[in-house]
Design a binder for these strands. Structure first.
Length: 507
RNA sequence: GCGGGCAUAGUUUAAUGGCAAAACUCCUGUUUUCCAAACAGGUAUCGUCGGUUCGAUUCCGUCUGCCCGCUCCA
């Protein structure tokens, strides 16, 4: 699924992100903290714009979706009911010799018993014929040790059931020799904390590993207090936390990240497959609207046999990152698993009254879930370009540019007086700057040569530069030079036309 | 968590067991009529802690972080 290509692009991105103030490593003066990042002045604007675009399109511009914001720390029983306490825990076993790692629940062992004497142990990985493999291995061990007697049928056990005395005697599947396997260790990906003054088992709480449970837990509150009718959605943007074993690929997989999730509730008799498809298309269109090109987008349909137990179908919208094609947006049809789980665990029915059939129903749900940080990395990667630019004298120079959509660009327009020591120019420029910044994120820059300032804005991804020049103050019409980022073309524009241009492209 | 590589200015990279260099960026000033102009000036306890040494950025170890491969990613 993943392919390595242009490895230097990732390094250029990380370096540009640092240099221009998009993303810094967290706590860098103390050596950094693996899996955590800070957003700098440009990065925070970009991230906020991505979030705001999503919220406007998903919530404010639709009749059928409402927003909520739930707490990061929820009742621990939420995560028991959702399956995260059990499901997020994978007991793992390492072989210290072969460096292989196994899931303890997929590794089986058995005592080799001859005439009621245990002569050793055998092990095998879970397969279609685990018992047969163990039996064969047991017979080989009996021959190898030249033991006479009757071999008993093997009794396979999961490695999770191995006692401390047995573990050193069980052979590693990789080497066939005992003594190299570690005891199973649990890796639960949820961060734990304690609520209240007492630090004991009863005070344990978790930082949420997803925002979705907030929508399920508040489902009755929302449906009881607002006028929503099926089908309707509840959306939320917020931080989630996963104690990933291996954070990797910059901000792609981090331990603290921000999710934008929406739970779309539909009637249990509704055509979930069609609704699922409609949401996939909606998500793809939304990604295009913030400037991600079709060439980098694709779909991955999870094969039926690999679906999580609660899922009826999951499609991931994939993005071609510099380090390979990876999941960007997951759209899952979850049935009514979550509401049913919470109804059972809390004892509070999670039902709606259906006027048509006069029956109570538990809605099913379609869930588009996406990470803000992954989108941000995608727009950085897709927008990044190094171009050769030839000047008047025929010299070729490199131009670094971030082609952000005006919708999400951190700075929409830069206001540049052609020269900083001519008051007529700077006064008009400051006047325009003051007017524009009431509505838009704009920057005023009078430092250095004009070409340098253009390039500086290119690296920040600013779509337009407006230069106040001598034509502005000497000729009638009060026009400025509008310089366009991608084409580097220039044309004259009036103040009114500039506002119209922004209104059209920044929405 | 395992194995391999790496760590020098904001960035990219040099050199060196004895005062740490360059380019670009950034900041200040002069100048400048449209695509990284010029001039002057400024910006580093060489990732951390420890060891060897008269002396360590350099050699050795520890930790942390980054990259690659495993593993993991309900």
């Amino acid at each position: 699924m993943s392919s390595t290509e242009t490895p230097h692009l990732m390094e250029s991105l990380v370096s540009l992100a640092k240099r221009r103030g998009f993303v810094y490593p967290s706590s860098e003066i103390y050596g950094g903290l693996n899996g955590f990042f800070d957003y700098g002045p440009l990065g925070v604007e970009l991230k906020r714009n991505i979030r705001d675009c999503w919220w406007r399109d998903m919530v404010q511009r639709r009749d059928d979706i409402v927003g909520i914001e739930t707490s990061i720390i929820m009742h621990p029983k939420v995560w028991e009911a959702s399956g995260h306490v059990a499901g997020f825990t994978d007991p793992l076993v390492d072989c210290k010799v072969s460096k292989q790692r196994y899931r303890a629940d997929q590794l089986f062992f058995a005592a080799v018993v001859v005439d009621n004497n245990t002569i050793g142990y055998v092990s095998a990985l879970e397969s279609e014929n685990t018992v047969g493999e163990l039996q064969t291995a047991a017979e080989q061990l009996k021959r190898k040790k030249a033991v006479q007697g009757t071999l008993a049928a093997v009794q396979p056990k999961e490695f999770t059931e191995a006692t401390a005395e047995e573990i050193p005697l069980i052979p590693s599947p990789a080497t066939g020799e005992p003594g190299s396997l570690t005891p199973p260790r649990a890796f639960n990906m949820m961060f734990e904390t304690n609520v209240g003054a007492m630090r004991d088992a009863s005070s344990v709480a978790y930082l949420r590993p997803e925002t979705a449970q907030g929508m399920f837990v508040d489902f009755k509150n929302v449906s009881d207090t607002t006028r929503v009718k099926l089908p309707f959605g509840i959306a939320q943007i917020g931080k989630s936390f996963r104690n990933e074993i291996t954070p990797r690929n910059f901000i792609f997989r981090s331990r603290e990240f921000e999710q934008m999730e929406m739970e779309y509730f539909i009637h249990e008799d509704a055509d979930w497959a069609q609704c699922h498809e409609e949401w996939i298309v909606w998500c793809e269109n939304w990604l295009r609207s913030i400037g991600l090109p079709d060439s980098h987008l694709s779909r991955y349909t999870h094969p039926k046999e690999k679906l999580a137990f609660y899922s009826r179908g999951t499609v991931d919208i994939m993005f071609k990152y510099p380090f390979g094609v990876q999941e960007l947006w997951g759209i899952a049809a979850r049935g009514n698993y979550d509401l049913t789980q919470h109804a059972n665990a809390s004892g509070k029915p999670q039902e709606l009254f259906d006027e048509a059939t006069k029956k109570k129903i538990v809605p099913h749900v379609i869930e588009p879930a996406v990470g803000v940080d992954r989108i941000l990395l995608a727009v950085l990667a897709a927008g990044y370009a190094e171009e050769d630019v030839t000047d008047d004298k025929g010299n070729v120079e490199k131009r670094t540019v971030l082609r952000f959509s005006p919708r999400i660009a951190p700075v929409k327009v830069a206001i540049l007086p052609l020269l900083k020591n001519k008051e007529q120019l700077t006064n008009r420029a400051k006047d325009l700057y003051t007017k524009l910044r009431r509505n838009y994120a704009v920057q005023y820059d009078d430092g250095g040569a004009i070409g340098k300032r253009y390039r500086r804005q290119d690296e920040a991804g600013t779509p337009w530069c407006v230069t106040i020049d001598f034509e502005t103050i000497e000729k009638p019409g009060d026009t400025f030079t509008l310089r366009e980022r991608d084409s580097m073309q220039q044309r004259r524009i009036t103040e009114a036309e500039l506002f119209a241009l922004l209104a059209e492209h920044v929405y």
